[in-house]
Design a protein around this nucleic acid. Structure first.
Lengths: 141, 141
DNA sequence: GCAATACCCGAGTTGTTTAGTCGGAATTAA
DNA sequence: TTAATTCCGACTAAACAACTCGGGTATTGC
């Protein structure tokens, strides 16, 4: 029951972008240094964030990334799902697998628990916005 | 954000044990057949369940496993933690890692979100008992 | 007693995933 | 032009997952 490093880094990076919201785009190099994350690894993560239109990019010198929406309209769940795909605690809950597991008795009994778990995880992650995440350090720069 | 097959099988197996609670101990071979799980793999899972005293074993011919407590006193969370260890969405939340991550700014900001996620996951899993899990099929044999 | 049945133990294997690395091409401000 | 940046695709070493395999030991029905 662990999140990938990609997700962890992605959320941290987005938190940085939220701090520097309004202002020049932030280059990945800067995030990499501040958060001690490999630049090349960050470069793999941001296409996912761009694809779902959470960020926009500015190419070239003095370019970088910025949030596409204000921090209070971006939820942690959006980031997690963008980077890692939909939350599926067990295979059985992935799409197209609706009844393939239910000829076994125990599988069907437990299925609803996993579905509920999935829903609650999404709830928790969707309950927190980037704004709330960084407000504790508001004004620190 | 996925559970391991060990956990999934473990919960399914425990559901079977709950169904056959009161009665002869259930041999792993039977669970393996009913749930289409490798017997050898089940044999790897059950020591974990025994260690935390969720089940007891009866050795010898006509032996097997049975629940150590009634189904209404066993929570899905107990099983998950027994088989997979404590829920830790990110490394930072593992024990002994309390401040090793907080010299990086984004890490500390996000930490509380992961902690909350961990707590909610535990809540959901601890909210369901084995009894509730199998009661939908009560009387089916 | 003895064969059958169950649990117990640890190593090995195979395939997938993770967490990156590496090199370079396209784009842009200065 | 040059330096900084995003973009793109391939590659890889290590870890992990999901088993398999081969036995060993204890217990019981008969």
């Amino acid at each position: 029951m662990r999140l990938s490093a990609k997700v962890e880094y992605g959320v941290r990076a987005m938190a940085i972008l939220a701090i520097y919201y309004q202002g020049d785009p932030v280059p990945l190099r800067q995030i990499a240094e501040q958060e001690q994350i490999s630049l090349k690894f960050l470069e793999q993560i941001f296409p996912d964030l761009k694809r779902v239109e959470l960020v926009t990019s500015v190419r070239g010198s003095r370019g970088g990334y910025r949030l596409m929406r204000p921090p209070e309209e971006i939820r942690v769940g959006d980031i997690v799902r963008a980077v890692e795909g939909p939350i599926t605690p067990v295979n059985c809950l992935a799409e197209g697998d609706d009844d393939s597991c239910c000829h076994r008795r125990g599988a069907c009994l437990t299925r609803q628990v996993w579905a509920r778990l999935r829903d609650k995880i999404n709830d928790v992650l969707d309950d927190v916005t980037l704004d709330e995440l960084v407000e504790v350090s508001a004004g620190k720069e």
